[in-house]
Design a protein around this nucleic acid. Structure first.
Lengths: 143, 143
DNA sequence: CATAAAAAAGATAAAAATATCTTTTAATCT
DNA sequence: AGATTAAAAGATATTTTTATCTTTTTTATG
């Protein structure tokens, strides 16, 4: 359902949500170990998210990645769509042609409901929602 | 969540459920076009299922793949486990270490419920359940 | 302005998933 | 028994995903 890349991206954004703001940017090298994502790969993913305006970044000294207040209003689904593309989530669970919500195949009816709910959660959950009331990274990235 | 291979396999088994029995075996070459799965690849998948006792087959003239009455009692989850292995479904949605149902990470709590339900459907649905009351292939594989 | 810091971009590599092709084995039928 | 049929097994190829490495561009600062 979700690619590894999307999971990585969400973990990265989550870290930024908990540890950064416009006045305190963070470097990929400070993140990757905590969230268990290869450094160079994480860099690529964050760059992609930045390019799409999901997160913020500045180059050069004192630069790094961070989340503005606006950034925090983005949903998990937006992250997933940037990384995995629209198609992956929209396609029929069973990969059957001409099958969608309106004209579901038998299998779609069977498992499609749960999938829809899964997507709904991603769509209705913002970064802010996720970290609301949480204090530290430990809670999100248990060893 | 499900690999393409698993989807292919389920489609193949579904076709067998609708079109075969011990007295009427079918060849891969008669299946693949209808369910839109590459011929040689489908053959491999069905062979794997046969090897694991999920479906039946015999070689030689009048041979082919088919489902015995017993075969029809297998669940979708069994098919998925043979093709994708145990790990794919059991791993944490977010790929976070030491995270499971008992000690869920924040994201797990968020989407884990829907995933569990998805797996429950696969686990509680047999091949027989799937085709119960259905008349033809068209209903399952709409063009 | 020169230097250093850090993201951005581009190129390449490795691994996994998907797909095909060839050879072997087993079953049936004449 | 010999020929033929079809799955089983094995080997190879392609594509996609995941991952790394190198170069370039931007920015801050001495």
């Amino acid at each position: 359902m979700l690619s590894n890349s999307s999971k990585y991206a969400i973990k990265g954004v989550l870290y930024l949500a908990l540890n950064s703001n416009a006045d305190h940017k963070v470097l990929v090298r400070d993140i990757y170990d905590t969230i268990h994502v290869p450094e160079a790969y994480l860099a690529k993913l964050l760059q992609e998210l930045s390019r799409h305006g999901i997160i913020s970044s500045t180059r050069g000294p004192k630069g790094g990645f961070y989340l503005s207040d606006e950034d925090r209003k983005h949903t998990l689904l937006e992250i997933v769509k940037v990384i995995d593309g629209e198609n992956r989530l929209n396609s029929c669970v069973m990969g059957i042609r001409n099958c969608d919500m309106d004209n579901p195949c038998v299998l779609h009816k069977l498992v499609g409901g749960n999938k829809s709910k899964f997507i709904n959660v991603l769509e209705s959950t913002t970064i802010l929602d996720l970290i609301d009331g949480k204090k530290g990274v430990e809670e999100f990235f248990p060893m």
